[in-house]
């Protein structure tokens, strides 16, 4: 009895001591369970835009293009049954719907075509072929043996590249393309509405893969470069690529950095979705600092969300955040209120 008690009491005390400390959980496990949402069986890959006074929100999922917004769930517009829809673009002004499709199993552009549809899903025509990628903001890239070209779905003249586009990341109306010619790499930034904005040579000293891109204004941009296990932030202007000296705390599971930019009280802010919560980059007088936001409404609500894409809302100052588990939110980055879910 005595020996057993002497053995058990210290074990219990050590256990209780361990339990009284914060352990390895990044966020509340029970909190994540409480916030878990039912799986609808489809995965939202991108929010495309809205029509008809916010009633029709178009989303690209792993099984096709759907419309939501009337509280009736996901209404199918286009199905991925025969050809896989790799990306899509809703051209609101026209309005038209474009999809980049390739045969099932052909992920890398073989037989990839750009197809044009009416917004209710009626097929109109094949718009182009040999398409390597399409962005949700309306820029696409074709590659043949004789010519590599950046095209614009808005009325902007196409741009020929002398090299090959190896990387593309989009942000709002812009796309960053990394062009490789011989051994020289060039960052080229295009606006979907005005064409090429700038081109700057990538410094040899900058190693790593570009995994994030964020527009600040028409002439200032940020990129996130994954270098080993760190995610370093660089600024890009027409003259240089400059290390800001700050890096992200972590990255979401799917490997792509999603972010949005806003201004408040004269300061520029960029919120990056991290594995938990958001990292907030503050830019003030060309000085950069980064912190984790854990208290604002959207940061708490979406803290464990796996983000598909973030685009500006039609309401100025707000953003739409699409997540892989099918929930789509309109957030106000300056408000501590909970974000509004679009259903």
């Amino acid at each position: 009895m005595k020996r057993t008690s002497l053995l058990l009491i210290p074990i219990l005390l050590i256990a209780l001591l361990l339990c009284s400390c914060n352990a390895d959980a990044q966020d509340g496990i029970f909190s994540a369970i409480a916030d878990s949402a039912p799986d609808a069986g489809i995965k939202v890959q991108a929010y495309l835009g809205s029509l008809n006074a916010e009633k029709s929100h178009y989303v690209l999922t792993d099984s096709g293009v759907y419309v939501i917004g009337n509280s009736t769930g996901f209404t199918p517009i286009l199905s991925s049954s025969d050809a896989q829809i790799r990306n899509a673009c809703l051209l609101i002004d026209s309005p038209l719907l474009y999809t980049l499709v390739s045969k099932q199993g052909s992920e890398n552009g073989e037989d990839s075509k750009l197809l044009r549809y009416a917004v209710r899903g009626t097929y109109e025509a094949e718009a182009d072929s040999n398409v390597k990628w399409l962005t949700t903001n309306g820029i696409y890239y074709t590659e043949t043996e004789s010519e590599n070209t950046i095209h614009f779905l808005h009325n902007v003249a196409a741009v020929s590249l002398s090299g090959k586009a190896t990387t593309k990341v989009e942000s709002e109306d812009y796309v960053l393309v990394e062009e490789l010619k011989d051994s020289t790499k060039t960052f080229r930034i295009y606006s979907s509405k005005t064409g090429e904005i700038l081109a700057v040579t990538r410094p040899d000293s900058l190693s790593g893969q570009v995994v994030g891109f964020q527009v600040i204004d028409d002439s200032n941009f940020l990129i996130v470069v994954k270098n080993s296990s760190t995610y370093d932030i660089y600024s890009i202007s027409s003259t240089e690529v400059k290390d800001t000296g700050v890096n992200l705390s972590s990255t979401p599971e799917n490997g792509t950095i999603h972010s949005f930019h806003y201004t408040s009280e004269g300061k520029n802010y960029v919120a990056f979705k991290a594995a938990q919560y958001f990292d907030l980059l503050t830019i003030e007088d060309s000085k950069y600092s980064i912190s984790t936001i854990s208290t604002a409404g959207y940061a708490t609500k979406l803290r464990t969300a796996s983000v598909s894409n973030i685009v500006p809302s039609t309401t100025t100052g707000k953003f739409i955040v699409a997540t892989w588990n099918n929930s789509i939110w309109e957030i106000d980055p300056t408000s501590t209120d909970d974000p509004v879910e679009i259903r």
């Binding site: 339990c19 009284s20 400390c21 914060n22 959980a25 990044q26 966020d27 509340g28 496990i29 029970f30 909190s31 369970i33 409480a34 938990q276 919560y277 984790t292 854990s294 208290t295 708490t300």
Partner: peptide, 20 residues
């Protein structure tokens, strides 16, 4: 099963204290 956190400067874990 309890999940107990002390107040933490980085994350607002304290609000996640819960019992299942």
């Amino acid at each position: 099963t309890a999940e107990l956190y002390t107040k933490n400067a980085t994350y607002d874990k304290y609000s996640n204290n819960a019992v299942l």
